[in-house]
Simulated assay, not measured.
Amino acid sequence: MNVLVVNAGSSSLKYQLLNTQSGEVFAKGNCERIGIDGSFIGHEEKGAGKSTLEVALPDHRTAIKHVFEILETVDAPVEGIGHRVVQGGWYFPESAVVTDETLAQVREVAPLAPLHNYAEADVIEICRDMFPELGNVIVPDTAFHYNMPERAWRYALPRDVVEKHHVRKYGAHGTSHRFIWRTVNEFMEGKAHKLVSCHLGSGASLCAIEDGHCMDTTMGLTPLDGLVMGTRCGTLDPATVFYLSRVGGYSIDEIDTMMNKQSGLLAVSGVSSDSRDVCEGADKGDENCEMALEMFSYRVGQLFAEMAASMGGVDTMAFTAGIGENSVELRQRVADKLAWLGVEIDPELNAVRSDDPRVISTPNSKITCLVVPTNEELMIALDVEALLG
């Protein structure tokens, strides 16, 4: 089945057209600066290289219309559309076919992810209007975490507050973590039972997966919780917000922006939110960059232990996403933090570059360590195929 996977943000729209059986990617691209001057579409087609189209994109309707016009030249008809939805809220324990009801639910839970859900809901509506003959499927990032144990998702807040405002741990990166489990289980021939999936990128989270079921994850009500990330601070004392407001004089919106867009590696290093730049700075002796890397790997090691505790042990770990798949140095730093658990990775295996899943731990390591390239688009497309046939 040929599936178009769409991922909309507040001012962007990424797309990929692929086949679920072969995994072949026919075309992919991104619409950038939607609603902003200087908008463009970057498009890449199999066998035709990359191209950039400078075009006015006043809204998402215009953007998706251009995408379909571009895809008309691709020799692979679209047979279904899958939509990555960041927040499924309290409605989506699994992916769902788009109906009037499910689309309304995506909008209802949008306050939990306002920059993404509203845009994706608009795109879903546009796709239904423009191409009523095509089925659409909602694939929420939170669905994989929906049925984690209550002890993990519940916050110790008054029950009436929790129930009225649906306050709980929702997590994120669930589609990626689900793909990692699927791939690891196949690669390890069913020998992995307690996996900590390490999705380490500009946004980062860990997930404890026991025999395919999420037991806990590091992101919480929003993707701000957990690890130190590119521009996000990760877990800190919640009273920090009150202190910055009362004593620092910052507004709630200013604190929100600070913690989501001005913190993390960017704030600690003072150089960049990109780990590659931070690693380069540390190599040149920049103490702030070194501290940023130390804090990042320390938090991964610390929360790795929390994830292991949620399963009563761990036998496998998998590095994935931008940092997890590509940073030899940060994988080694994380492994060093977990040496007390018996983690030992082989420097030569760790240095290998590959697009395939691979083991990087030594035979003596008590935990099997892998690098597994994630493929959220394929996972979304497979859900589309399963629901639409």
Results as ranks from 00 to 15, higher is better:
residue 94 E to K: 15
residue 269 S to I: 11
residue 85 V to D: 00
residue 123 V to R: 09
residue 197 S to Y: 06
residue 196 V to M: 09
residue 52 T to R: 11
residue 34 I to R: 03
residue 276 R to N: 13
residue 85 V to P: 01
residue 141 D to E: 13
residue 331 R to S: 11
residue 73 T to E: 15
residue 223 P to I: 03
residue 182 R to P: 04
residue 207 C to P: 06
residue 300 V to T: 05
residue 367 I to R: 03
residue 221 L to G: 00
residue 207 C to I: 06
residue 215 M to I: 03
residue 178 R to I: 06
residue 19 N to F: 01
residue 176 S to V: 05
residue 261 K to F: 11
residue 318 A to G: 01
residue 350 N to K: 12
residue 379 M to W: 00
residue 228 V to D: 07
residue 297 S to G: 01
residue 128 R to L: 13
residue 387 L to K: 10
residue 201 G to P: 09
residue 187 F to S: 04
residue 19 N to T: 12
residue 158 P to G: 06
residue 136 N to Q: 15
residue 89 G to R: 08
residue 354 S to V: 08
residue 70 I to F: 10
residue 256 D to T: 15
residue 93 P to W: 04
residue 314 V to P: 09
residue 129 D to F: 01
residue 199 H to V: 10
residue 190 G to W: 11
residue 377 E to P: 04
residue 39 S to Y: 08
residue 220 G to N: 05
residue 158 P to W: 04
residue 169 K to C: 01
residue 165 H to K: 01
residue 374 T to N: 03
residue 167 V to H: 01
residue 35 G to R: 10
residue 96 A to T: 14
residue 11 S to E: 01
residue 57 L to V: 06
residue 132 P to T: 07
residue 49 G to F: 02
residue 378 L to M: 15
residue 29 G to E: 00
residue 213 H to Y: 12
residue 67 V to H: 00
residue 246 R to D: 15
residue 58 P to R: 06
residue 258 M to Q: 05
residue 56 A to S: 10
residue 241 V to E: 06
residue 230 G to I: 10
residue 264 G to L: 09
residue 263 S to Q: 04
residue 335 A to F: 02
residue 173 H to V: 14
residue 224 L to D: 10
residue 265 L to G: 04
residue 242 F to S: 12
residue 285 G to L: 11
residue 154 R to M: 12
residue 254 E to T: 12
residue 205 S to R: 06
residue 116 H to M: 03
residue 130 M to W: 11
residue 48 A to E: 15
residue 239 A to W: 00
residue 388 L to R: 02
residue 37 D to H: 11
residue 369 C to V: 15
residue 273 S to Q: 10
residue 123 V to K: 09
residue 158 P to N: 05
residue 90 W to K: 10
residue 377 E to H: 06
residue 323 I to T: 10
residue 233 C to Y: 00
residue 294 E to A: 10
residue 372 V to T: 11
residue 32 E to T: 09
residue 173 H to P: 05
residue 126 I to V: 14
residue 259 M to D: 01
residue 105 Q to N: 11
residue 245 S to P: 01
residue 164 K to T: 14
residue 72 E to W: 01
residue 127 C to P: 06
residue 342 G to T: 08
residue 64 I to R: 04
residue 345 I to F: 10
residue 273 S to R: 08
residue 72 E to G: 02
residue 293 L to G: 08
residue 247 V to S: 12
residue 384 V to D: 03
residue 163 E to H: 10
residue 219 M to L: 07
residue 236 L to A: 12
residue 214 C to Q: 03
residue 246 R to Y: 07
residue 16 Q to G: 02
residue 203 G to A: 05
residue 186 E to W: 06
residue 355 D to F: 02
residue 178 R to E: 15
residue 239 A to T: 13
residue 243 Y to S: 07
residue 244 L to F: 08
residue 331 R to Q: 07
residue 59 D to Y: 03
residue 362 T to M: 08
residue 135 G to V: 05
residue 220 G to H: 07
residue 10 S to T: 04
residue 261 K to Q: 12
residue 387 L to Q: 11
residue 217 T to I: 05
residue 345 I to N: 02
residue 222 T to I: 00
residue 321 A to G: 04
residue 266 L to T: 00
residue 200 L to G: 06
residue 37 D to I: 12
residue 100 D to V: 10
residue 18 L to P: 04
residue 319 F to T: 02
residue 88 G to T: 09
residue 81 I to D: 08
residue 245 S to T: 09
residue 229 M to A: 03
residue 19 N to V: 00
residue 154 R to D: 13
residue 91 Y to H: 15
residue 368 T to V: 13
residue 387 L to V: 08
